[in-house]
Amino acid sequence: MPTAQGGTLYRGREGMWSWVAHRVTGFAIFFFLLVHVTDTALVRVSPEAYNAVIGTYQTPLMGLGEAGLVAAIVFHAFNGIRIILVDFLAKGPRYQRVMLWIVLGLFVVTMAGFLPRHLMNVFGGQ
């Protein structure tokens, strides 16, 4: 199946690249989730163990990682809604490209709201 010989309906352009991005972000979020449930489980070990590990999340490097992760989730979420609309609206497929630009616009707005605040928490003060 993955070895189709060219000329498929979905090859190239916005439709394909948004699909690639959706797949890559979904994949990344899943593996983060495995790690994240495990680190949170340390609250059952001791306050010290939990605080020690979560402390590493508050370093500048991890702070940037969190920013990337939030970006992945925000894109996946908005584009997921776009996929649902493409599937369920009668004119969905016709407007899939317009909707991708709306997704990217909302993505920029959301990240513009989140990034300054988060980066100030990570890099500023204390």
Partner: peptide, 21 residues
């Protein structure tokens, strides 16, 4: 997920405030 991210990363001191307490 958005509610989770907002309460843990945006409210108060964000990720800096997360600890056992």
């Amino acid at each position: 997920v958005f509610g989770h991210l907002f309460v843990n990363l945006m409210v108060g001191d964000g990720v800096e405030a997360i600890d056992f307490a």
